[in-house]
Simulated scan of single mutants.
Amino acid sequence: MNRDDRDDPFGDLFEEIERMMDRMAGVEDGPGDGSGFRSETHVDTYLEDDVVRLVADLPGVSKEDLSLQCDGETLTVSAASDRREYDERISLPVRVDERSASATFKNGVLEVVFERADDSASIDLE
């Protein structure tokens, strides 16, 4: 016996929950729309002792297609391939020294490491 989706009393509820979750995550077109990070990419950010490490899965992207920019608070990852385009701004958990960044890209996995920025600067009095 085949299941008839019209008989699912929770179908509409689950669809509405997915729409609300997409809206909270900033996804306009919903999951699976081929827009990049929002639908297919998993991004993890790790706050370690003196560094911030970000790991992102970028399927179907080559190293030559990647562009990374950081302003100390946000990392922007952009890439264009034949099949998809990525353009994602990732808020970092703490301020980082963007000039300390090191990045590797192997087998579709991007890893970026930043040193944490000093929380404050001392001011010398004369």
Rank of each mutant, 00 (worst) to 15 (best):
L110E: 07
P59S: 13
T104Y: 06
L68K: 08
E28W: 01
C70M: 09
G108C: 05
F37N: 11
G11M: 02
F10N: 13
L47K: 05
R116D: 02
S39N: 09
G72Y: 09
D71Q: 05
E98R: 15
I90C: 02
P59H: 07
P59A: 10
P9N: 04
L110A: 11
D82G: 11
G34H: 02
D29R: 10
A103E: 14
S39H: 07
G30W: 01
F14R: 07
K106E: 15
L75K: 04
F114C: 01
G36K: 07
E28Y: 00
Y86H: 12
T45K: 13
M21H: 07
G32R: 06
G30A: 04
T76I: 12
D22W: 05
L110Q: 07
S100V: 14
M20D: 09
D97S: 14
E40F: 09
E48N: 10
E73N: 14
A117Q: 08
V77Y: 06
T45M: 11
L68Q: 05
D119W: 09
D12W: 07
P93T: 04
L66Q: 02
T76R: 15
A103Q: 15
D87H: 13
D87G: 09
Y86E: 08
R89Q: 15
E115R: 14
D29G: 07
D4N: 15
E28M: 00
G30T: 03
L92N: 01
D65Q: 12
R116C: 08
G72M: 07
P59D: 15
G72R: 08
G72F: 04
F114G: 00
T45N: 02
E16I: 00
R38T: 00
M24W: 06
F105D: 06
D29Y: 09
S100E: 13
S78E: 15
